[in-house]
Amino acid sequence: MEQPDPIIHQPIRLKIMAALKPLPASDPIEFVRLKAMVGTTEGNLGAHITTLEEAGYVAVQKDFVAKRPRTRVSLTKNGRRAFEDYLDYLRAIIGTNEPAA
């Protein structure tokens, strides 16, 4: 990768991708939990999630629980690969090939 992935190379989206990476795709995280983790507003998070979803990096599931709407987000296979590539790109710049913890 010569250039950083422009979709991931944005502070909030980087945090979203990093927060989703350790979670299993089959166990998506609720939007409200992700919001607390990333530390941003609902509108801001929503906009970045849409960008990532359009790029095919995250999957968004919407349903109702006890008549209340629930939005859940998980990393897709493509997203996981793109994030790994992005981390490799960063490591290459700083001159280390050790994977992030």
Binding site: P11, K15, A18, M37, A100
Partner: peptide
């Protein structure tokens, strides 16, 4: 990289 590690 550090920010990604912390968030992860």
């Amino acid at each position: 990289l550090s920010e990604a590690e912390i968030a992860g």
